[in-house]
C-alpha cells in the first residue's frame, strides 16, 4: 500500500530534510485527544480518501512554506494551490478507482489522459508549472505522472495512451529522479500493478 506518507517522503527527500517517521498500529483515544487539542480535525476511519488527500496537502504545503518551495509571488503561490488541488482531485477521481479496484478502465484512462494533455501543454509553455523555479506543484505533477505510469506499465494494452506523448512531463520526471534521495526512495518502494491499494 502507498500511503499519504509517500508524498511527504518524496518531498522531504527532495528538499534534503532529515526526518523521522512514527508509524502507528492504531489511533487510541489519548492520541486522538492530543491531536484535537492542536486543531487536527482527524477522522476515525482509514477509508476516507477525501480527508487524507486534503490533509496530506496541508502538511506538504507547510513543509514547502518552510523551504521557499511554494512559489515566489502571490500568483505563483495561487498556481501552486490550484495545481495541487487539481492533482489530488485527479488522483481521487481517476487514479484511485483504477488502482484500488485493480481494473483498468479504458474510459477513465482516456479522461486521465485529457488531464495529462493539459499539464503537458502548460509545461510546453514554461519549464515549471508555477513560476520560474521548481515548486510543490511540480512535485505533485511528478508524483501523479510517475505513480500512474508505474502502475500501468504492466498493462501493455494501455501503453499507447502514454508512449512518448508527454515529453515535458517526462522531463519533469527525470528532474526529480535525478535527485539521489528521491530515486533511492522510489526504487526502494516497488510501485506497480501489484500494489493493491493507493491512499495518497
Amino acid at each position: 500500500m502507498i500511503s499519504s506518507i509517500y508524498i511527504f517522503k518524496i518531498l522531504l527527500s527532495y528538499l534534503g530534510v532529515e526526518y523521522e517517521i512514527n508509524q502507528l498500529s492504531e489511533i487510541n483515544q489519548e492520541f486522538t485527544n492530543k491531536l484535537e487539542s492542536y486543531n487536527q480535525f482527524i477522522k476515525h476511519t482509514q477509508k476516507d480518501e477525501d480527508y487524507l488527500l486534503g490533509q496530506s496537502a496541508v502538511i506538504s504545503r507547510y513543509i514547502s512554506n518552510n523551504h521557499n518551495f511554494s512559489g515566489k509571488s502571490l500568483q505563483e503561490s495561487a498556481r501552486v494551490d490550484d495545481i495541487v488541488e487539481s492533482v489530488l482531485e485527479i488522483i481521487e477521481e481517476y487514479v484511485l478507482p483504477i488502482i484500488n479496484s485493480n481494473i483498468i478502465n479504458e474510459e477513465i484512462t482516456k479522461l486521465l489522459c485529457t488531464h495529462f494533455n493539459d499539464f503537458e501543454n502548460q509545461l510546453s509553455k514554461s519549464t515549471f508549472s508555477a513560476g520560474d523555479s521548481t515548486t510543490l506543484a511540480d512535485l505533485y505533477l511528478f508524483i501523479l505522472y510517475d505513480i500512474t505510469l508505474r502502475y500501468l506499465e504492466n498493462h501493455g494494452h494501455l501503453a499507447h495512451h502514454f508512449n512518448e506523448k508527454y515529453p515535458h512531463l517526462e522531463r519533469l520526471k527525470l528532474h526529480f529522479l535525478s535527485n539521489k534521495s528521491v530515486s533511492e526512495f522510489i526504487n526502494s518502494n516497488n510501485i506497480n500493478s501489484q500494489s493493491s491499494q493507493l491512499i495518497i
Binding site: 487536527q40 477522522k43 477525501d50 480527508y51 486534503g54 496537502a57 496541508v58 507547510y62 518552510n66
Partner: peptide, 21 residues
C-alpha cells in the same frame, strides 16, 4: 506566520472536504 497559515490551510481542508461536501 507560517504556522498560522498552516492552520488556515488545515481548516480550509477540513471545512471543504469534511463539512461542506
Amino acid at each position: 506566520s507560517i504556522k498560522e497559515r498552516a492552520i488556515v490551510d488545515e481548516t480550509i481542508a477540513a471545512v471543504h472536504d469534511d463539512v461542506i461536501i
